[in-house]
Design a protein around this nucleic acid. Sequence first.
DNA 1: TTCTTTACCTGACATTTGTCATAGTATTAC
DNA 2: GTAATACTATGACAAATGTCAGGTAAAGAA
Lengths: 230, 230
Amino acid sequence: MEHSRCENCIIRQFNALRAMSKEELKQVSDSKITKQVKKGEALFEEGDKLNGVYCVRHGVSKLSKLSPNGKDQIVKLASKGEVMGQRSVIAEEHTNLTAVAVNDMEVCFIPKESITTTLQKNPNFTLEVLRHMSHDLKEADDVIVNMGQKTVKQRLAEAFLYLRNNFGEDQEGFLLLNLSREDIASVVGTATESAIRIISEFKKKGLIETSGKRSKIKDEKGLQNLANGL
Amino acid sequence: MEHSRCENCIIRQFNALRAMSKEELKQVSDSKITKQVKKGEALFEEGDKLNGVYCVRHGVSKLSKLSPNGKDQIVKLASKGEVMGQRSVIAEEHTNLTAVAVNDMEVCFIPKESITTTLQKNPNFTLEVLRHMSHDLKEADDVIVNMGQKTVKQRLAEAFLYLRNNFGEDQEGFLLLNLSREDIASVVGTATESAIRIISEFKKKGLIETSGKRSKIKDEKGLQNLANGL
DNA sequence: TTCTTTACCTGACATTTGTCATAGTATTAC
DNA sequence: GTAATACTATGACAAATGTCAGGTAAAGAA
Protein backbone atom coordinates (compact mmCIF):
# COMPACT_ATOMS: atom_id res chain seq x y z
CA MET A 1 0.00 0.00 0.00
CA GLU A 2 1.24 3.45 -0.84
CA HIS A 3 2.29 5.48 2.17
CA SER A 4 0.31 8.66 1.60
CA ARG A 5 1.57 11.94 3.04
CA CYS A 6 -0.35 13.77 5.74
CA GLU A 7 0.45 17.03 4.02
CA ASN A 8 -1.82 15.97 1.17
CA CYS A 9 -4.46 14.23 3.25
CA ILE A 10 -7.83 15.91 3.05
CA ILE A 11 -9.03 14.06 6.12
CA ARG A 12 -7.00 16.32 8.33
CA GLN A 13 -9.22 19.28 7.42
CA PHE A 14 -11.80 17.71 9.71
CA ASN A 15 -9.62 17.61 12.79
CA ALA A 16 -7.06 19.54 14.78
CA LEU A 17 -4.17 18.45 12.53
CA ARG A 18 -5.18 21.29 10.23
CA ALA A 19 -3.53 23.66 12.66
CA MET A 20 -0.14 22.03 12.34
CA SER A 21 2.68 23.71 10.48
CA LYS A 22 4.25 22.21 7.35
CA GLU A 23 7.24 20.96 9.33
CA GLU A 24 5.15 19.48 12.09
CA LEU A 25 3.00 17.65 9.57
CA LYS A 26 6.07 16.32 7.84
CA GLN A 27 7.27 14.94 11.14
CA VAL A 28 3.88 13.33 11.77
CA SER A 29 3.82 11.89 8.30
CA ASP A 30 7.24 10.31 8.73
CA SER A 31 6.34 8.64 12.00
CA LYS A 32 2.75 7.60 11.36
CA ILE A 33 1.67 4.07 10.54
CA THR A 34 -1.38 3.37 8.40
CA LYS A 35 -3.36 0.34 9.51
CA GLN A 36 -6.19 -1.67 8.06
CA VAL A 37 -8.64 -2.78 10.68
CA LYS A 38 -11.25 -5.43 9.97
CA LYS A 39 -14.81 -5.20 11.17
CA GLY A 40 -15.02 -6.41 14.74
CA GLU A 41 -11.34 -5.93 15.51
CA ALA A 42 -10.32 -3.74 18.43
CA LEU A 43 -8.00 -0.76 17.99
CA PHE A 44 -7.45 -0.51 21.70
CA GLU A 45 -9.12 -1.61 24.88
CA GLU A 46 -10.15 -0.05 28.17
CA GLY A 47 -7.14 0.16 30.43
CA ASP A 48 -4.56 0.19 27.64
CA LYS A 49 -1.79 2.74 27.78
CA LEU A 50 -1.85 4.38 24.38
CA ASN A 51 1.39 5.34 22.70
CA GLY A 52 -0.32 7.54 20.20
CA VAL A 53 -3.58 8.57 18.66
CA TYR A 54 -5.62 7.10 15.84
CA CYS A 55 -6.89 9.23 12.98
CA VAL A 56 -9.76 7.65 11.08
CA ARG A 57 -9.47 7.65 7.27
CA HIS A 58 -12.25 5.21 6.41
CA GLY A 59 -14.88 3.30 8.31
CA VAL A 60 -16.44 3.78 11.71
CA SER A 61 -15.36 2.78 15.19
CA LYS A 62 -17.49 2.42 18.28
CA LEU A 63 -16.04 3.75 21.50
CA SER A 64 -17.52 1.91 24.44
CA LYS A 65 -17.07 1.27 28.12
CA LEU A 66 -17.94 -1.79 30.10
CA SER A 67 -20.34 -1.18 32.95
CA PRO A 68 -20.17 -3.18 36.20
CA ASN A 69 -23.24 -5.15 35.14
CA GLY A 70 -21.23 -6.62 32.29
CA LYS A 71 -22.83 -4.76 29.42
CA ASP A 72 -21.17 -2.29 27.09
CA GLN A 73 -22.30 1.25 26.66
CA ILE A 74 -21.33 2.91 23.39
CA VAL A 75 -20.30 6.44 24.21
CA LYS A 76 -19.43 7.67 20.74
CA LEU A 77 -19.15 6.61 17.12
CA ALA A 78 -16.02 7.93 15.44
CA SER A 79 -15.78 8.24 11.67
CA LYS A 80 -13.72 9.89 8.95
CA GLY A 81 -11.52 12.65 10.29
CA GLU A 82 -12.01 11.95 13.94
CA VAL A 83 -9.09 11.37 16.25
CA MET A 84 -9.33 8.69 18.91
CA GLY A 85 -7.25 8.27 22.01
CA GLN A 86 -6.27 11.91 22.44
CA ARG A 87 -7.51 12.05 26.00
CA SER A 88 -5.22 9.25 27.04
CA VAL A 89 -2.25 10.94 25.38
CA ILE A 90 -3.00 14.43 26.71
CA ALA A 91 -3.66 13.37 30.28
CA GLU A 92 -1.01 10.64 30.15
CA GLU A 93 -3.33 8.12 31.68
CA HIS A 94 -4.75 4.80 30.63
CA THR A 95 -7.66 5.00 28.24
CA ASN A 96 -11.14 4.62 29.68
CA LEU A 97 -12.68 3.37 26.46
CA THR A 98 -12.52 0.44 24.09
CA ALA A 99 -12.45 1.12 20.35
CA VAL A 100 -13.82 -1.55 18.02
CA ALA A 101 -14.30 -1.28 14.26
CA VAL A 102 -17.96 -1.32 13.24
CA ASN A 103 -16.98 -1.91 9.63
CA ASP A 104 -13.69 -2.26 7.81
CA MET A 105 -11.47 0.68 8.59
CA GLU A 106 -8.30 2.43 7.60
CA VAL A 107 -6.68 4.43 10.37
CA CYS A 108 -3.40 6.23 10.86
CA PHE A 109 -1.58 5.65 14.11
CA ILE A 110 0.36 8.74 15.13
CA PRO A 111 2.96 8.21 17.89
CA LYS A 112 2.34 10.44 20.85
CA GLU A 113 5.68 12.23 20.66
CA SER A 114 4.65 14.07 17.51
CA ILE A 115 1.49 15.14 19.27
CA THR A 116 2.89 16.13 22.65
CA THR A 117 5.77 18.17 21.32
CA THR A 118 3.44 20.06 19.02
CA LEU A 119 1.03 20.60 21.91
CA GLN A 120 3.84 22.26 23.85
CA LYS A 121 5.14 24.39 21.02
CA ASN A 122 2.25 25.35 18.79
CA PRO A 123 -0.52 27.17 20.64
CA ASN A 124 -2.66 27.20 17.53
CA PHE A 125 -2.67 23.44 17.44
CA THR A 126 -3.38 23.15 21.14
CA LEU A 127 -6.19 25.63 20.82
CA GLU A 128 -7.63 23.72 17.90
CA VAL A 129 -7.53 20.47 19.86
CA LEU A 130 -9.20 22.34 22.69
CA ARG A 131 -11.97 23.55 20.38
CA HIS A 132 -12.65 20.03 19.18
CA MET A 133 -12.69 18.66 22.69
CA SER A 134 -14.94 21.48 23.73
CA HIS A 135 -17.35 20.38 21.03
CA ASP A 136 -17.15 16.76 22.15
CA LEU A 137 -17.91 17.78 25.69
CA LYS A 138 -20.98 19.70 24.58
CA GLU A 139 -22.20 16.66 22.70
CA ALA A 140 -21.57 14.51 25.75
CA ASP A 141 -23.74 16.88 27.79
CA ASP A 142 -26.54 16.44 25.29
CA VAL A 143 -26.23 12.68 25.53
CA ILE A 144 -26.43 12.86 29.32
CA VAL A 145 -29.61 14.92 29.11
CA ASN A 146 -31.16 12.46 26.67
CA MET A 147 -30.21 9.48 28.77
CA GLY A 148 -31.57 11.06 31.90
CA GLN A 149 -34.76 12.56 30.60
CA LYS A 150 -35.95 10.57 27.61
CA THR A 151 -37.58 7.18 27.31
CA VAL A 152 -35.96 4.36 25.39
CA LYS A 153 -38.38 4.93 22.54
CA GLN A 154 -37.46 8.59 22.30
CA ARG A 155 -33.75 7.84 22.39
CA LEU A 156 -34.16 5.19 19.74
CA ALA A 157 -36.00 7.58 17.43
CA GLU A 158 -33.22 10.05 17.96
CA ALA A 159 -30.59 7.42 17.27
CA PHE A 160 -31.98 6.78 13.81
CA LEU A 161 -31.98 10.48 12.99
CA TYR A 162 -28.46 10.74 14.36
CA LEU A 163 -27.27 7.87 12.20
CA ARG A 164 -28.64 9.49 9.10
CA ASN A 165 -27.44 13.00 9.88
CA ASN A 166 -23.94 11.89 10.79
CA PHE A 167 -23.25 9.01 8.46
CA GLY A 168 -25.60 9.69 5.58
CA GLU A 169 -27.75 7.55 3.33
CA ASP A 170 -27.39 6.03 -0.14
CA GLN A 171 -29.38 6.90 -3.27
CA GLU A 172 -32.24 4.68 -2.17
CA GLY A 173 -32.34 6.32 1.24
CA PHE A 174 -30.78 3.46 3.19
CA LEU A 175 -28.51 4.37 6.07
CA LEU A 176 -24.85 4.06 5.16
CA LEU A 177 -23.96 2.87 8.61
CA ASN A 178 -25.63 -0.40 9.52
CA LEU A 179 -25.40 -1.14 13.20
CA SER A 180 -26.55 -4.44 14.64
CA ARG A 181 -29.55 -4.34 16.94
CA GLU A 182 -27.21 -5.11 19.78
CA ASP A 183 -25.04 -2.09 18.95
CA ILE A 184 -28.08 0.14 18.63
CA ALA A 185 -29.25 -1.06 22.02
CA SER A 186 -25.79 -0.33 23.37
CA VAL A 187 -25.93 3.22 22.00
CA VAL A 188 -29.28 4.09 23.55
CA GLY A 189 -28.63 2.14 26.73
CA THR A 190 -31.27 -0.57 26.71
CA ALA A 191 -31.65 -4.32 26.37
CA THR A 192 -31.27 -5.75 22.86
CA GLU A 193 -34.78 -7.24 23.04
CA SER A 194 -36.28 -3.90 23.94
CA ALA A 195 -34.52 -2.24 21.04
CA ILE A 196 -35.74 -4.90 18.62
CA ARG A 197 -39.28 -4.60 19.90
CA ILE A 198 -39.38 -0.85 19.50
CA ILE A 199 -37.76 -1.00 16.07
CA SER A 200 -40.49 -3.44 15.02
CA GLU A 201 -43.02 -0.94 16.28
CA PHE A 202 -41.35 1.83 14.25
CA LYS A 203 -41.64 -0.37 11.18
CA LYS A 204 -45.33 -1.05 11.80
CA LYS A 205 -45.98 2.65 12.20
CA GLY A 206 -44.17 3.39 8.95
CA LEU A 207 -41.50 5.50 10.60
CA ILE A 208 -38.71 3.35 9.21
CA GLU A 209 -38.38 0.47 6.77
CA THR A 210 -35.87 -2.32 6.61
CA SER A 211 -34.54 -4.59 3.91
CA GLY A 212 -32.14 -7.28 5.02
CA LYS A 213 -29.88 -5.60 7.49
CA ARG A 214 -30.28 -2.20 5.93
CA SER A 215 -32.73 0.38 7.20
CA LYS A 216 -34.23 3.52 5.79
CA ILE A 217 -35.94 6.47 7.42
CA LYS A 218 -39.44 6.86 6.01
CA ASP A 219 -40.94 9.52 8.22
CA GLU A 220 -38.35 11.92 9.54
CA LYS A 221 -40.90 14.31 10.94
CA GLY A 222 -42.61 11.50 12.80
CA LEU A 223 -39.36 10.31 14.33
CA GLN A 224 -38.50 13.86 15.27
CA ASN A 225 -41.82 14.34 17.02
CA LEU A 226 -41.45 11.06 18.81
CA ALA A 227 -37.95 11.99 19.96
CA ASN A 228 -39.28 15.23 21.40
CA GLY A 229 -42.14 13.53 23.15
CA LEU A 230 -44.98 14.96 21.09
CA MET B 1 -15.35 43.99 50.16
CA GLU B 2 -11.64 43.80 49.64
CA HIS B 3 -10.59 43.12 46.06
CA SER B 4 -8.26 40.20 46.50
CA ARG B 5 -5.52 39.55 43.98
CA CYS B 6 -5.51 36.45 41.80
CA GLU B 7 -1.77 36.18 42.32
CA ASN B 8 -2.43 35.35 45.95
CA CYS B 9 -5.54 33.29 45.43
CA ILE B 10 -5.08 29.67 46.43
CA ILE B 11 -8.20 28.64 44.54
CA ARG B 12 -6.36 28.91 41.26
CA GLN B 13 -4.15 25.97 42.18
CA PHE B 14 -7.18 23.83 41.42
CA ASN B 15 -7.68 25.03 37.88
CA ALA B 16 -5.88 26.01 34.71
CA LEU B 17 -5.09 29.51 35.95
CA ARG B 18 -2.12 27.99 37.73
CA ALA B 19 -0.40 27.84 34.36
CA MET B 20 -0.60 31.58 33.80
CA SER B 21 2.45 33.78 34.08
CA LYS B 22 2.76 36.53 36.68
CA GLU B 23 1.92 39.20 34.12
CA GLU B 24 -1.04 37.32 32.74
CA LEU B 25 -2.40 36.82 36.23
CA LYS B 26 -1.96 40.48 36.98
CA GLN B 27 -3.99 41.34 33.91
CA VAL B 28 -6.72 38.90 34.94
CA SER B 29 -6.73 40.27 38.44
CA ASP B 30 -7.17 43.83 37.20
CA SER B 31 -10.10 42.97 34.97
CA LYS B 32 -11.93 40.42 37.10
CA ILE B 33 -15.07 41.18 39.07
CA THR B 34 -15.90 39.30 42.26
CA LYS B 35 -19.59 38.59 42.70
CA GLN B 36 -21.74 37.31 45.52
CA VAL B 37 -24.46 35.01 44.29
CA LYS B 38 -27.36 34.02 46.51
CA LYS B 39 -28.74 30.49 46.66
CA GLY B 40 -31.15 29.97 43.81
CA GLU B 41 -29.83 32.81 41.66
CA ALA B 42 -28.64 32.08 38.14
CA LEU B 43 -25.12 32.96 36.99
CA PHE B 44 -26.06 32.43 33.38
CA GLU B 45 -28.71 30.67 31.38
CA GLU B 46 -28.86 28.32 28.43
CA GLY B 47 -28.51 30.33 25.26
CA ASP B 48 -26.64 33.24 26.82
CA LYS B 49 -23.57 34.56 25.10
CA LEU B 50 -20.92 34.64 27.80
CA ASN B 51 -18.43 37.47 27.89
CA GLY B 52 -16.17 35.66 30.24
CA VAL B 53 -15.76 32.73 32.57
CA TYR B 54 -16.69 32.24 36.21
CA CYS B 55 -14.21 30.92 38.73
CA VAL B 56 -15.83 29.53 41.86
CA ARG B 57 -14.37 30.70 45.18
CA HIS B 58 -17.07 29.50 47.54
CA GLY B 59 -20.28 27.54 47.24
CA VAL B 60 -21.60 25.18 44.62
CA SER B 61 -23.39 25.70 41.33
CA LYS B 62 -25.50 23.23 39.40
CA LEU B 63 -25.02 23.17 35.64
CA SER B 64 -28.17 21.95 33.99
CA LYS B 65 -29.93 21.73 30.66
CA LEU B 66 -33.61 21.76 29.91
CA SER B 67 -34.87 18.70 28.07
CA PRO B 68 -37.75 18.91 25.56
CA ASN B 69 -40.06 17.31 28.12
CA GLY B 70 -39.70 20.38 30.29
CA LYS B 71 -37.53 18.87 32.99
CA ASP B 72 -34.00 19.86 33.92
CA GLN B 73 -31.08 17.49 33.88
CA ILE B 74 -28.15 18.43 36.07
CA VAL B 75 -25.02 17.68 34.12
CA LYS B 76 -22.41 18.75 36.64
CA LEU B 77 -21.95 20.32 40.04
CA ALA B 78 -19.17 22.90 40.12
CA SER B 79 -17.47 23.89 43.34
CA LYS B 80 -14.36 25.64 44.66
CA GLY B 81 -11.73 26.09 42.00
CA GLU B 82 -13.82 25.07 39.06
CA VAL B 83 -14.22 27.30 36.07
CA MET B 84 -17.60 27.60 34.39
CA GLY B 85 -18.42 28.83 30.94
CA GLN B 86 -15.07 28.08 29.35
CA ARG B 87 -16.63 26.08 26.54
CA SER B 88 -18.72 28.99 25.44
CA VAL B 89 -15.70 31.29 25.46
CA ILE B 90 -13.36 28.85 23.72
CA ALA B 91 -15.77 27.86 20.97
CA GLU B 92 -17.25 31.33 20.80
CA GLU B 93 -20.77 30.02 20.87
CA HIS B 94 -23.77 30.43 23.11
CA THR B 95 -23.67 28.37 26.26
CA ASN B 96 -25.63 25.13 26.32
CA LEU B 97 -26.07 25.07 30.07
CA THR B 98 -27.73 27.02 32.84
CA ALA B 99 -25.77 27.70 36.02
CA VAL B 100 -27.71 28.18 39.26
CA ALA B 101 -26.26 28.55 42.75
CA VAL B 102 -27.11 25.61 45.00
CA ASN B 103 -26.01 27.61 48.05
CA ASP B 104 -24.59 31.07 48.58
CA MET B 105 -21.57 31.57 46.37
CA GLU B 106 -18.67 33.84 45.72
CA VAL B 107 -17.39 33.75 42.15
CA CYS B 108 -14.93 35.74 40.08
CA PHE B 109 -16.02 36.79 36.65
CA ILE B 110 -13.07 36.96 34.29
CA PRO B 111 -13.68 38.79 30.99
CA LYS B 112 -13.02 36.60 28.00
CA GLU B 113 -10.29 38.82 26.55
CA SER B 114 -7.87 37.88 29.33
CA ILE B 115 -8.60 34.24 28.62
CA THR B 116 -8.50 34.24 24.84
CA THR B 117 -5.30 36.22 24.51
CA THR B 118 -3.58 33.94 26.97
CA LEU B 119 -4.91 30.91 25.11
CA GLN B 120 -3.26 32.21 21.96
CA LYS B 121 0.04 33.13 23.53
CA ASN B 122 0.76 30.74 26.35
CA PRO B 123 0.80 27.10 25.24
CA ASN B 124 1.24 25.95 28.81
CA PHE B 125 -2.00 27.55 29.80
CA THR B 126 -3.84 26.17 26.78
CA LEU B 127 -2.46 22.73 27.50
CA GLU B 128 -3.52 22.99 31.10
CA VAL B 129 -7.05 23.97 30.08
CA LEU B 130 -6.98 21.05 27.69
CA ARG B 131 -5.98 18.68 30.47
CA HIS B 132 -8.84 19.84 32.63
CA MET B 133 -11.33 19.55 29.82
CA SER B 134 -9.96 16.14 29.01
CA HIS B 135 -10.72 15.14 32.57
CA ASP B 136 -14.23 16.59 32.36
CA LEU B 137 -14.87 14.62 29.19
CA LYS B 138 -13.77 11.41 30.84
CA GLU B 139 -16.14 12.08 33.70
CA ALA B 140 -18.92 12.79 31.24
CA ASP B 141 -18.29 9.41 29.62
CA ASP B 142 -18.67 7.74 32.99
CA VAL B 143 -21.94 9.54 33.57
CA ILE B 144 -23.21 8.37 30.19
CA VAL B 145 -22.35 4.78 31.03
CA ASN B 146 -24.12 5.04 34.37
CA MET B 147 -27.18 6.61 32.84
CA GLY B 148 -27.36 4.00 30.13
CA GLN B 149 -26.60 0.90 32.12
CA LYS B 150 -27.61 1.40 35.72
CA THR B 151 -30.98 1.49 37.38
CA VAL B 152 -32.25 4.54 39.21
CA LYS B 153 -31.48 2.87 42.51
CA GLN B 154 -27.89 2.22 41.51
CA ARG B 155 -27.40 5.75 40.28
CA LEU B 156 -28.90 7.14 43.45
CA ALA B 157 -26.57 5.08 45.63
CA GLU B 158 -23.70 6.36 43.55
CA ALA B 159 -24.92 9.93 43.84
CA PHE B 160 -24.67 9.82 47.62
CA LEU B 161 -21.15 8.47 47.46
CA TYR B 162 -20.29 11.11 44.90
CA LEU B 163 -21.65 13.87 47.10
CA ARG B 164 -19.55 12.76 50.01
CA ASN B 165 -16.37 12.15 48.04
CA ASN B 166 -16.55 15.46 46.22
CA PHE B 167 -18.02 17.84 48.75
CA GLY B 168 -17.13 16.19 52.03
CA GLU B 169 -18.88 15.74 55.35
CA ASP B 170 -18.84 17.53 58.70
CA GLN B 171 -17.59 16.19 62.04
CA GLU B 172 -20.83 14.33 62.62
CA GLY B 173 -20.66 12.74 59.19
CA PHE B 174 -23.38 14.81 57.55
CA LEU B 175 -22.89 15.73 53.92
CA LEU B 176 -21.68 19.27 53.50
CA LEU B 177 -23.69 19.73 50.34
CA ASN B 178 -27.42 19.41 50.92
CA LEU B 179 -29.32 19.04 47.69
CA SER B 180 -33.11 19.08 47.59
CA ARG B 181 -34.80 15.85 46.58
CA GLU B 182 -35.74 17.54 43.34
CA ASP B 183 -32.11 18.36 42.60
CA ILE B 184 -31.00 14.85 43.45
CA ALA B 185 -33.65 13.51 41.10
CA SER B 186 -32.40 15.89 38.46
CA VAL B 187 -28.85 14.62 38.90
CA VAL B 188 -29.70 10.96 38.51
CA GLY B 189 -32.37 11.55 35.87
CA THR B 190 -35.55 10.36 37.50
CA ALA B 191 -38.85 11.69 38.85
CA THR B 192 -38.72 13.45 42.20
CA GLU B 193 -41.18 10.96 43.68
CA SER B 194 -39.06 8.02 42.63
CA ALA B 195 -36.00 9.60 44.18
CA ILE B 196 -37.85 10.23 47.44
CA ARG B 197 -39.17 6.68 47.50
CA ILE B 198 -35.77 5.12 47.02
CA ILE B 199 -34.15 7.45 49.54
CA SER B 200 -36.77 6.32 52.07
CA GLU B 201 -35.83 2.76 51.25
CA PHE B 202 -32.14 3.55 51.81
CA LYS B 203 -33.05 4.96 55.20
CA LYS B 204 -35.05 1.87 56.14
CA LYS B 205 -32.15 -0.34 55.15
CA GLY B 206 -29.76 1.73 57.23
CA LEU B 207 -27.66 2.79 54.27
CA ILE B 208 -28.15 6.45 55.02
CA GLU B 209 -29.68 8.53 57.78
CA THR B 210 -31.28 11.95 57.71
CA SER B 211 -31.89 14.70 60.18
CA GLY B 212 -33.89 17.65 58.95
CA LYS B 213 -32.58 18.34 55.51
CA ARG B 214 -29.17 16.96 56.26
CA SER B 215 -28.13 13.43 55.39
CA LYS B 216 -25.36 11.14 56.44
CA ILE B 217 -23.91 8.01 54.88
CA LYS B 218 -24.16 5.12 57.34
CA ASP B 219 -23.09 2.17 55.24
CA GLU B 220 -20.62 3.11 52.54
CA LYS B 221 -19.86 -0.46 51.61
CA GLY B 222 -23.55 -1.23 51.25
CA LEU B 223 -24.10 1.75 48.98
CA GLN B 224 -21.07 0.80 46.96
CA ASN B 225 -22.32 -2.73 46.47
CA LEU B 226 -25.73 -1.48 45.53
CA ALA B 227 -24.23 0.93 42.98
CA ASN B 228 -22.34 -1.94 41.40
CA GLY B 229 -25.37 -4.16 41.25
CA LEU B 230 -24.27 -6.75 43.78
C1' DT C 1 -48.26 34.32 65.61
C1' DT C 2 -50.95 32.78 61.50
C1' DC C 3 -51.03 32.29 56.75
C1' DT C 4 -48.86 30.78 52.64
C1' DT C 5 -45.82 28.48 50.13
C1' DT C 6 -42.60 25.06 49.36
C1' DA C 7 -40.52 20.75 50.22
C1' DC C 8 -41.18 16.07 51.54
C1' DC C 9 -43.61 11.76 51.71
C1' DT C 10 -46.82 7.83 50.50
C1' DG C 11 -50.45 5.13 48.07
C1' DA C 12 -52.49 3.49 43.87
C1' DC C 13 -52.12 2.56 39.37
C1' DA C 14 -50.54 2.55 34.50
C1' DT C 15 -46.68 2.27 31.68
C1' DT C 16 -42.18 1.13 30.53
C1' DT C 17 -38.49 -1.80 30.56
C1' DG C 18 -35.76 -6.00 31.57
C1' DT C 19 -35.44 -11.00 31.68
C1' DC C 20 -36.17 -15.56 30.27
C1' DA C 21 -37.69 -18.71 26.97
C1' DT C 22 -38.32 -20.04 22.30
C1' DA C 23 -38.15 -19.91 17.46
C1' DG C 24 -37.23 -18.22 12.85
C1' DT C 25 -33.64 -16.31 9.78
C1' DA C 26 -29.41 -15.09 8.10
C1' DT C 27 -24.41 -15.77 7.94
C1' DT C 28 -20.31 -18.23 8.30
C1' DA C 29 -17.36 -22.30 8.59
C1' DC C 30 -16.28 -26.62 7.05
C1' DG D 1 -24.45 -28.11 0.80
C1' DT D 2 -24.80 -28.75 5.46
C1' DA D 3 -23.91 -27.77 10.08
C1' DA D 4 -22.86 -24.47 13.33
C1' DT D 5 -23.25 -19.99 14.87
C1' DA D 6 -24.79 -15.55 15.24
C1' DC D 7 -28.55 -12.24 14.68
C1' DT D 8 -33.41 -11.03 14.67
C1' DA D 9 -37.88 -11.58 16.41
C1' DT D 10 -41.85 -12.37 19.64
C1' DG D 11 -44.46 -13.90 23.80
C1' DA D 12 -45.00 -14.00 28.70
C1' DC D 13 -44.06 -12.31 32.87
C1' DA D 14 -41.75 -9.74 36.60
C1' DA D 15 -39.60 -5.69 38.03
C1' DA D 16 -38.72 -0.88 37.71
C1' DT D 17 -40.32 3.60 36.94
C1' DG D 18 -43.51 7.50 36.02
C1' DT D 19 -47.80 9.80 36.97
C1' DC D 20 -51.57 11.40 39.57
C1' DA D 21 -53.56 12.27 43.86
C1' DG D 22 -53.56 13.44 48.40
C1' DG D 23 -51.38 14.25 52.55
C1' DT D 24 -47.87 16.04 56.25
C1' DA D 25 -43.98 18.75 57.68
C1' DA D 26 -41.16 22.54 57.33
C1' DA D 27 -39.84 27.08 56.03
C1' DG D 28 -40.78 31.81 54.86
C1' DA D 29 -43.91 35.97 54.64
C1' DA D 30 -47.28 39.00 56.47
